[in-house]
């Protein structure tokens, strides 16, 4: 069947037309019409590397967040923790950016508590949740111990974090448990994410667990037979050795 015949068949089904807009009036992006793949030079979409300066946390908040993440992933004789990985810088940049603002999340009301299987239902995006929770944590520590969270002993910090995790300590404005779960998740992200986002500094976490990072070809190693594979990790930035003479 020829093209025109098919067109003819379908034309009989077409309804009457009215005034037509031209495609040039569209704000959509139009491709095709035999033009081929719309490839444009110098139009890659590289990641956002973040900023170098603290942008969201106040100094007191930053000290508290650094102390919390240092207990969630401690530094010890076995290997680096959140402190060496500079997780607090990662968290600060995340809270200052689209993630902290909940910019890509559905944040319309009404808000209700929900069941465990319904997930995050706070009216606050992550950055505001952190801010409210850190204020309440500070108030709790000062009332109980007359000290900021960062000023407490590691043992006492662990006790308080366990209290949040097990819902023995509660907050008023936000859920202490939701905050604990979120900062634990974000701390793990900061520890293991590519260093371009501010944490996992010098790829310490990747080196510690043996992850070679963003290499793109392991064909020579598929047949490893259960033996270890020793590879220096590589970040999206490359690695320092590459730029040395």
């Amino acid at each position: 069947m020829s093209y025109t015949t098919r067109r003819g068949v379908l034309k009989t089904l077409l309804f009457g037309g009215t005034a037509l807009a031209t495609p040039s009036a569209l704000w959509a992006v139009e491709y095709g019409r035999g033009e081929g793949m719309p490839w444009v030079t110098m139009r890659g979409d590289p990641p956002y590397y973040g900023t170098t300066d603290a942008r969201f946390f106040t100094p007191d908040e930053r000290a508290a967040v650094a102390a919390i993440s240092a207990r969630l992933i401690p530094s010890d004789d076995d290997g680096p923790g959140a402190t060496e990985a500079d997780v607090v810088t990662f968290l600060d940049r995340q809270m200052a950016g689209f993630y902290g603002r909940g910019q890509h999340w559905y944040m319309k009301g009404p808000f209700a508590e929900g069941t465990d299987t319904q997930g995050y239902q706070s009216e606050y995006p992550p950055a505001e949740l952190y801010r409210h929770a850190l204020a309440e944590l500070d108030a709790y520590c000062r009332a109980q111990d007359d000290e900021s969270f960062a000023g407490l002993s590691e043992g006492r910090q662990d006790e308080i974090l366990t209290g949040l995790d097990e819902e023995k300590i509660t907050f008023d404005a936000v859920s202490a448990k939701v905050f604990f779960d979120l900062i634990l998740k974000n701390t793990i992200e900061g520890y293991f994410a590519d260093p371009i986002y501010g944490g996992n500094r010098d790829m310490v976490a990747w080196r510690y667990v043996g992850f070679p990072g963003t290499r793109y070809d392991y064909r020579d190693f598929v047949n490893h037979g259960g033996a270890p594979i020793q590879l220096e990790p590589v970040s999206l930035m490359g690695r320092p050795g590459w730029s040395r003479p």
Partner: peptide
């Protein structure tokens, strides 16, 4: 443009920040 080997393997961006998924917003 979008999955170049110089940045495709970015776990935070693509999985945890949903780089290529529908935004719930």
């Amino acid at each position: 443009k979008d999955f170049a080997t110089t940045f495709a393997q970015d776990e935070l961006r693509y999985y945890w920040r949903h780089g290529m998924f529908q935004e719930t917003a």
